[in-house]
């Protein structure tokens, strides 16, 4: 397919591109935020250092995707990340779920198993997604994908190690992990779909079809699941809410309230 550097105004191509960029940016942004809520609370000090570093990388990736949107005239990066309302957000619902009940400043029961499973599933998906975006018809996006792909190599290694270790640890750990896997499966469809403009996104050559990515993603998960004697469901449960259409849970609303509270204290501050 022909490579494009500047999409024509008011074209189907441009609409599809903008839609996909919002999904990419919002996915990384909200999960980086959820990750950063663990700061100081991770199971041990080494993990605290590692997780912070991963969150910083992910926030950097979100910033790059927002930058591509800014370049298309969608608005300024800080506004795009901080001031858009809940119903304007396009992230998959899986990524907005709280880490557990409670608040990170007060009493809380954050669930490490859930965090490990969600991050592992997401990072593996992100890898498959970036592999496909490398040949995107939109050249600036393909360039960013090459860069992101290299950085998440270490993220994936990290989460896969945690996943295998906790799955193969004692029965308490195994039980928590199985519960977490179930919860993540219930939401995973929200991640793998491109939303109402999905067909246009694929037709524009921006990324390959959803089922192709799903297949590849399952292909990567299979040996890991086999190693811990778990099976991958044949069919995924349809997502409860379609984040890609701007339908979200109150978890996202609350997270955005916290985020924008800080942002609106001084919108001219440089971050």
């Amino acid at each position: 397919m022909k490579k494009i550097d500047f999409p024509p105004e008011e074209s189907m191509y441009r609409t599809a591109l903008v839609e996909l960029l919002y999904q990419l940016a919002d996915d990384d942004f909200i999960l980086a935020y959820r990750g950063s809520e663990w700061l100081g609370l991770a199971p041990h000090i080494e993990e605290d250092v590692a997780f912070s570093s991963i969150n910083q990388d992910m926030m950097g990736h979100a910033a790059m995707f927002y930058q591509l949107l800014e370049d298309l005239g969608e608005g300024d990066v800080d506004d795009l990340s901080h001031s858009r309302k809940t119903n304007e957000r396009k992230n998959g619902v899986l990524l907005e779920r709280v880490n557990g009940p409670g608040h990170y400043l007060g009493k809380h029961e954050f669930d490490w198993a859930y965090t490990v499973v969600r991050h592992y599933f997401y990072t593996q998906f992100k890898k498959v997604r970036m592999d496909s975006l490398k040949t995107s018809s939109y050249q600036p996006l393909a360039d960013v994908a090459v860069k992101v792909r290299m950085e998440i190599y270490y993220h994936l290694l990290h989460w896969k190690t945690w996943f295998l270790q906790l799955m193969q640890s004692n029965s308490d750990s195994r039980g928590r992990m199985e519960k977490a896997v179930q919860r993540v499966w219930d939401d995973v469809d929200s991640l793998l779909c491109y939303g109402p403009n999905g067909d246009d996104i694929v037709k524009a050559g921006l990324i390959e079809a959803e089922d192709k990515l799903l297949q590849r993603w399952k292909h990567f998960l299979t040996p890991v699941f086999e190693a811990v004697h778990l099976s991958i469901p044949e069919k995924l449960k349809p997502a409860a809410a379609s984040g890609r259409e701007g339908v979200h849970t109150k978890d996202l609303e609350e997270a955005l309230a916290v985020l924008s509270e800080v942002y609106y204290m001084d919108t001219t501050a440089s971050w």
Binding site: E46, V49, A50, S52, S53, Q56, D57, M150, Y154
Partner: peptide, 27 residues
């Protein structure tokens, strides 16, 4: 630890001189 104090560094340990040290990650 694959992840060190900054994005580009990892933390290692030398079993000979028993010093911890950092290394730039291969990318």
């Amino acid at each position: 630890n694959l992840f060190g104090p900054t994005a580009c560094r990892s933390i290692l340990y030398c079993k000979s001189c028993k010093n911890p040290f950092e290394a730039m990650k291969p990318i």
